[in-house]
Nucleic acid binder design. Structure first.
Lengths: 224, 224
DNA sequence: GGAATGCTTCGATAAGGATCGAACCATGCG
DNA sequence: CGCATGGTTCGATCCTTATCGAAGCATTCC
């Protein structure tokens, strides 16, 4: 019984199903609000709030208050790495999952990450927006270029910042391990994809499935 | 509330103080009996037995029965890696510990991680093995190069894969935050270090202490 | 200044699980 | 076989903690 870092304390924080679901949801890289996390974990708001304060006390989360919204996010890459390690063991010892089915494949191609698009399509899109200089990489931030403003405006997407929420924001993609676009612009693009019926949300899943013609339209507008 | 690997189940196994102490003790790499683990965890024998069967059910331990003795050991390097990751987070978020004492310093330099070497020495070694192209980084995997095979063979280390266990595997180091070498090769190298008496295991600790001449020999062979 | 929304705290309840003593198996020794 | 030793199972107790409804704060919108 030698003393040392309190690993039981950290592990038990992850060891509750509700908290594990929350952390899992936050592995996408985007910060989420308490209500969203409550939904994700399948518990009531008070319960979620209690879990969140425990995770905060444990140092696993960071909190960004924006007005009456409170965004919870993972405290850092080290925490994310630990969760990945636990996932790895759980996968290894857990019931041998059948080969990743079509739904998993669809998730890798395109899925919803809170309110914007993630997956291979989303990562490719961000790459192209940089290539076409519609977005500019500025330090670790993303900015709109003047041509970007008019480009999105022509698509019916207004890009002036109204809320405190940033227009552009990088979000680390779970499956591709590179950034995709979040922020109000990312959300607006996803809105457009759905509104134009280029794709539909899979029921009870984060997967986003493009129709053949919808994919062509999306590629013409964002990947050309 | 998506379904997936049951990470809460795994984490909650580690999340009990008694079990965490047991796992910690097993990180030394030697298998221990139920009574030894009970002592280590500070619980009675029945309690320890109950914990051990839970850890077995969870797939975190292996059991080797020898006569009336039953030796429990970690189920593999992946489990060890997960525990290292949790230790890393616990160290980072835990109460700012007083200046790391001499024993902690020794642990940072070199220690046992289940069955292979960890710490600054181990991370430096892996770096050099890459530099010398004895190992190759392939995607996210590690492979032996042809020259690596002959190099280790000349040192008396055979590197053909026999079991399911990979020869080379990256394991994240909690103190350095970079990878060191696990897998059968990592285990063989630690064996050689001990067999050649370049270093000895510290009593009741995971620390590995090199002798002056042993360190020179190690550096000549693996860090040159 | 209301009204509405997002979130937290409080209080009570319920369930899970950690713990130990005692009894029970199994192996090895003489 | 009888006995000692290492381990596990059983049963009862106790404590931790997850949970939710209701009420309370805080911030924004109208």
């Amino acid at each position: 019984m030698r003393e040392g870092p309190d690993i039981a304390r950290i592990a038990s924080l992850v060891g509750d199903p509700a908290r594990a679901n929350m952390l899992n949801a936050l592995m996408g890289g985007t910060a989420l609000t308490a209500s969203e996390l409550a939904l994700e974990a399948g518990v009531s708001l008070p319960t979620a709030s209690s879990h969140l304060s425990k995770l905060m006390d444990g140092g696993l989360l960071t909190l960004a208050s924006q007005g009456r919204h409170r965004y919870y996010g993972l405290a850092g890459a080290q925490v994310a790495g630990m969760i990945e390690a636990i996932i790895g063991v759980a996968e290894a010892v857990g019931p041998k999952r059948v080969r990743p089915g079509p739904r998993d494949a669809a998730m890798r191609v395109a899925r919803v990450c809170y309110d914007h698009l993630a997956g291979e399509q989303a990562v490719a899109m961000l790459d192209r927006l940089f290539d076409r200089k519609l977005l500019l990489r500025d330090d670790n931030q993303i900015r709109l270029s003047p041509s970007g403003v008019s480009h999105f405006s022509a698509l019916g997407i207004e890009t002036h910042a109204k809320a405190r929420r940033p227009v552009c924001r990088a979000c680390l993609d779970w499956s591709v391990r590179r950034s995709h676009l979040a922020g109000t612009l990312g959300a607006a693009i996803l809105d457009k994809i759905i509104a134009e019926k280029w794709a539909r949300r899979e029921k009870d899943s984060r997967a986003v499935v493009f129709s053949p013609t919808g994919r062509q339209a999306f590629e013409r507008v964002f990947l050309s």
